[in-house]
Design a protein around this nucleic acid. Structure first.
Lengths: 268, 268
DNA sequence: CTGTATATGAGCGAGGTCAATCATAAATGG
DNA sequence: CCATTTATGATTGACCTCGCTCATATACAG
């Protein structure tokens, strides 16, 4: 009756894959697909559920939603309240008729969500992030444009020379850029091809606003993105004081924080 | 006991929304969220399931994955076996190093799935369909490129002038195109902007192969796509005989059917 | 205002699912 | 090669879900 370890492991991997593909499978279907008894099918499902790979339901199981971006939804949930406030601040920058670039990244994604639920009329939203396009899509007053480029499945974004060429065809009123770190020198990101694309976008935009959450403060990652002199606005949940302590000195008019109380206090 | 129509309608819409958001809800949860008895919850779920908006499961319900494309998965499931055979035939056209355009459409989507599970090395896959990009993405030997363009949320594809400009930057060895109808005159599709894009792709491709399932035989839709003279291959599950009866006369070397027995029988 | 249509919730039997237990046979480890 | 571990499938009883019918109260139409 017993079978070898690797057989079990392979079967469970196959089950996870099938579940991923089909989204939902009843117990009976699992039995037929795996060629095992209900008891074993149950045990396999329980094992996968314990690992968090699938979700068990009464009578079947669900392949977890975005397996390709396992952390995306989780990250998305973090710091919701302050992200919402940031998003509101971002929306106040938008005017009807604008052409706006939306970068990838969770902060900007939540701005996109906010825009989708309170659309500003005749906005043309350009992005290289598929998630964002899908979040923004469906609204009738917003035109969503995806740049072309090489598809990075891990992050579900478009990069590469084609993406840069595609971005060069546009002229943005505003570019919302994301980054993974900010230091007194400026903004940092980790992947060279993403930075190259972001720089191209920056050159094509009248105004560049960077959106970073507070965890990015003082973090320096491999690839340099932009110096502060090239940035027209910083949208962050960090307080003005935290920024100062991190050595990031910007005119108050450039800073948009999530906290309405500490917003824009330019020195007299 | 009875409530007004609009109340029922609003409740069911809310239910659909919640299901969409949460992915899966047990019957008990539905009851609590809606504040109704299990009987009513069942009725609501049954109604939504009948409309294809959700999927009923034993003990609960699923908000359909891609609720934006309610029919996508359903259409996808149809005619699986013959679609798989078609996909195999399509894979035989691919050679390492090729640059291939993949159109939107369920038939071509299944070709993409087949390619993803049996990758041909160094293929560059270009597409305007987000689903397809996600299905193909992740493989290390396949480069997936998305063209730019306006995002159509309903179909999750890219169209418009930008898309045509973006396609014009490419040179394809092979273009796999989809259509909604075929008559003796040629191929038909329904949306003008899609047809415009497909034509641009065709002009940029050394070889144009159309992929249609048998239901498209004899169907004529508003927008004319291409005459048969511009098509280098027809990939279909329809038999050679069915094609003849529909008045579609093509040299046997251009026809690739799903049935291996009737495949390629050129006249002597 | 009256009659009809219908949305609701309760009760019912039939059948499905689950977790637990147990015997067994095969894989593992020494 | 033997002792141990463990993956498997059968069984069982408790619980749950389902579709059905039915009584009822409310919305809707004339």
């Amino acid at each position: 009756m017993r079978v070898a370890f690797h057989v079990v492991e392979a079967r469970r991997n196959a089950l996870a894959r099938q579940l991923r593909r089909h989204g939902y499978l009843t117990l009976a279907r699992v039995c037929r697909r795996l060629g095992v008894s209900p008891a074993t099918a149950r045990r396999d499902l329980a094992a996968l559920a314990r690992e968090g790979i699938i979700t068990r339901t009464y009578g079947g199981a669900l392949g977890d939603y975005d397996r390709r971006f396992p952390s995306f939804r989780a990250r998305q949930r973090k710091a919701q309240a302050s992200k919402r406030r940031l998003a509101q601040a971002a929306l106040r920058m938008l005017r009807p008729g604008m052409t706006v670039f939306f970068d990838a990244g969770t902060t900007i994604y939540s701005i996109g969500e906010a825009l989708a639920s309170h659309p500003v009329s005749r906005i043309t939203a350009v992005t290289n992030a598929l998630h964002l396009a899908e979040a923004l899509g469906g609204s009738k007053v917003i035109t969503v444009q995806l740049v072309g480029g090489e598809f990075l499945a891990r992050q579900s974004i478009l990069v590469g020379p084609q993406a840069q060429r595609s971005a060069a065809l546009w002229r943005f009123d505003l570019a919302l850029l994301s980054a993974e770190g900010m230091t007194p020198a400026g903004l940092w990101n980790s992947q060279a091809d993403i930075v190259a694309f972001q720089r191209k976008v920056a050159t094509r935009s009248r105004r560049v606003v960077c959106c970073l959450d507070a965890t990015k403060l003082g973090r320096k990652t491999p690839a340099f993105l932009l110096p502060w002199s090239r940035v027209d606005g910083l949208l962050t949940e960090a307080t003005a004081r935290e920024l100062r302590e991190a050595g990031i000195i910007l005119p108050g008019s450039k800073i948009f924080t999530a906290n309405p109380l500490t917003r824009r206090k330019p020195s007299p």
